[in-house]
């Protein structure tokens, strides 16, 4: 696996990306072992200790209920990262399926799927989200389902364009001539060619989902209390902006740092995988698509 080793080498040479990865690993570990670090959980209310400013006991201070803000931020990572990974995976699966089908078969199938993608793009994400939250019970599940469902379109477009170009490669033609079926052709010869751009878009999209989750929670449409979510922590902290600024400052910093890291790692993977891919991604503007719809569109 020479390619793999080269990838590791290239990636770790990129100090920013490696730094981002380290930060993410730390956050993931903290979230995973939150129960060990803070065995009391993050929901226990202790009104006597409300709104303490940052100190050695409470490095991030306490919230209006006397809960340790650091513990809440770490438990909150579970929500934010969980929603991010699940939503992106849903987008990935949907996008891979529809993108491959559209690109592989072309013709009418292709144009129907691409029209659906257009409708998804043109449809305000927020509306869809509120609708789903009203039908299903609001909370984490509806959150990542909808965020995932919205992301399928850009993923499908990317996969489709990749499939269309790979389809014409000689070895694919050769395999087809040798009588390989649709499934085998797609699975064995075409899809592997889509892996690198998909990984890059997947990672970059993670940051955007974390941001979207925070934005929705900020608007009051995210996860339900007492689950700590970074966006909700910031939104609940706004009225305390002057009396207890740490309530908005720390969750905001961690949130920004996390999204930053996802972007760094995504860029790093892209550069290490294939220096040429940067150009494709930039030109087709897929990043812009995701960000445009999820962040500003909200």
């Amino acid at each position: 696996m020479d390619g793999w080793r080269r990838f590791i080498r290239d990636f770790s040479r990129n100090r920013m990306a490696a730094g981002g990865l380290v930060f993410l690993i730390l956050i993931v570990l903290a979230a995973a072992f939150a129960g060990l670090i803070f065995p009391d959980g993050a929901d226990e209310i202790d009104l006597d200790n409300a709104l303490r400013s940052p100190s050695a006991v409470h490095p991030f201070g306490t919230d209006p209920f006397g809960r340790d803000l650091l513990a809440r931020v770490i438990y909150g990572a579970r929500i934010s990262l969980g929603v991010g990974f699940l939503a992106r995976t849903i987008s990935l699966l949907l996008g891979l399926f529809f993108g491959t089908v559209a690109g592989y078969f072309g013709g009418r199938t292709d144009s129907i799927i691409m029209r659906l993608a257009d409708i998804t793009f043109a449809f305000p994400a927020l509306l869809l989200l509120i609708a789903v939250m009203a039908v299903v019970s609001p909370g984490m599940i509806s959150l990542f389902t909808v965020l995932g469902a919205i992301g399928w379109a850009s993923m499908a477009r990317l996969v489709r364009s990749r499939v269309i170009s790979v389809k014409e490669y000689e070895y694919v033609e050769a395999a087809r001539a040798a009588g390989a079926g649709h499934l085998k052709l797609a699975g064995k010869y075409i899809l592997p060619q889509c892996v690198s751009p998909v990984i890059v878009v997947y990672t970059l999209g993670l940051g955007m989902i974390v941001m979207a989750e925070a934005s929705l929670s900020f608007l009051g449409l995210g996860v339900q209390p007492p689950l700590p979510s970074w966006g909700r922590m910031i939104s609940n902290g706004i009225v305390f902006m002057r009396s207890a600024p740490w309530l908005t400052l720390f969750p905001g910093l961690v949130l920004t740092a996390t999204i930053c890291s996802f972007n760094l790692v995504g860029d790093g993977i892209r550069d290490a995988l294939d220096p040429g891919s940067k150009r494709i991604a930039a030109r087709t503007g897929k990043e812009g698509m995701i960000r445009g719809r999820l962040q500003q569109g909200l």
Binding site: S215, I259, C260, N263, L264, R291, Q296
Partner: peptide, 15 residues
């Protein structure tokens, strides 16, 4: 610019 892409709009606005 990296911070710029990563900072949530609502947080930036508040600050």
């Amino acid at each position: 610019s990296l911070v710029g892409v990563s900072i949530p709009v609502f947080w930036l606005g508040l600050i």
